[in-house]
Simulated scan of single mutants.
Amino acid sequence: MVDEGARRHGWGSTRWYETSPTDSGREAAQAARADGADVILIAGGDGTVRAVADVVRGTGIPVALLPFGTGNLLARNLGAPRNDLTASVAAAFSGSSRAVDVGVAELRDETGSAHTHAFVVMAGMGLDADMAKTTSALAKKHLGWLAYVSPIATSICKNRRFLLRFRVDHGPVMTARAHTVIVGNCGTLTGNMLLLPAARVDDGKLDVVMMRPAGRLGWTRIGSRLTLQGWARRSRLSRTLLSYAGDLRALAYTQGSVFEAAFDEPREIQLDGDGFGAVTRVKISVLPGALLIRST
């Protein structure tokens, strides 16, 4: 279908680069970049997109999304086709390029070792990082989002908070205790739940939310609020209900270009659904418009 789409829209021959169990796309992207690719079609989920974006950000080489992952959150937030391969291929060869922001996470572990990675959807510590660590690729492949039920339930039942010292845009250092911290470039989750209402993929900013639920009832309130926020984008009644709901103390939001945090003990971190181990310090910044994505 890809070769046919290229011919139909007057493109030259295509080249194929395989990923592997040990490489989610970085080496394939490096090979495609070295070969002078005009556009890179990414067949996979958010983790594969993240690996490719880490290589091609800032190069001017556009990418196109062929969503085959578990969540496909970037495609969901962009309004790109998610269940129509023909439309996705057509966008790759006949669409226009849209510039979106890329997050860059500088991670430091307890040994002092530092490494840097890009992401396009969300970075997280807490619930989502636990999900990334304990959910196998095989389970995600066969069960989809059902594979996350067990780690979500375990994390909610334990409801353990951690201490962090953080600052936004080089402002004053603040201290907080949270169960989960998310730094996002996109706001919508599966099921149309809206985690970060102010997030835009091309606004040059990062959105941060700290989840601080008081027990299981607190998690119920968070789930209800995220669902209502998702509905509010489509329903006038939901927007009215949300306007009367007031702020939820269990959700603390902020926004900026740089987010820095240090933890009282090593915390697991995930980037776009991939686990990157335990860290003691993070510095997350944004590169405005660093990735070009083909869209209709």
Rank of each mutant, 00 (worst) to 15 (best):
Trp231Leu: 13
Gly246Cys: 08
Leu143Gly: 06
Ser13Lys: 07
Ser224Cys: 13
Glu106Trp: 12
Val55Arg: 01
Ala80Asn: 02
Leu195Lys: 04
Pro21Gln: 15
Leu196Phe: 05
Ile152Pro: 02
Ile40Ala: 00
Arg108Leu: 07
Gln229Asp: 11
Ser155Trp: 03
Gly223Leu: 13
Ala129Asn: 08
Ser295His: 03
Asp54His: 04
Arg234Phe: 12
Ser235His: 07
Val149Asn: 05
Phe259Leu: 05
Met174His: 15
Gly10Val: 15
Gly5Val: 06
Arg98Gly: 02
Ala250Thr: 06
Asp23Glu: 11
Ala92Glu: 11
Ala105Trp: 05
Arg76Ile: 10
Leu195His: 01
Val282Trp: 00
Ala6Val: 12
Ala232Asp: 11
Val208Phe: 06
Gly95Thr: 11
Arg26Asp: 05
Ala132Gln: 09
Ser238Pro: 10
Asp202Lys: 01
Arg161Pro: 06
Asp46His: 11
Leu271Tyr: 00
Ile222Cys: 13
Val55Tyr: 03
His117Glu: 14
Ala28Phe: 02
Phe119Pro: 00
Met131Glu: 10
Pro288Leu: 03
Val104Ala: 06
Leu248Trp: 07
Tyr244Val: 15
Pro21Asn: 09
Leu107His: 11
Thr135Phe: 03
Asp38His: 13
Asp272Cys: 05
Cys157Gly: 08
Ile156Asp: 00
Val173Met: 04
Ser94Leu: 14
Lys141Ser: 12
Gly218Glu: 03
Ala6Gln: 08
Val181Lys: 01
Arg26Trp: 06
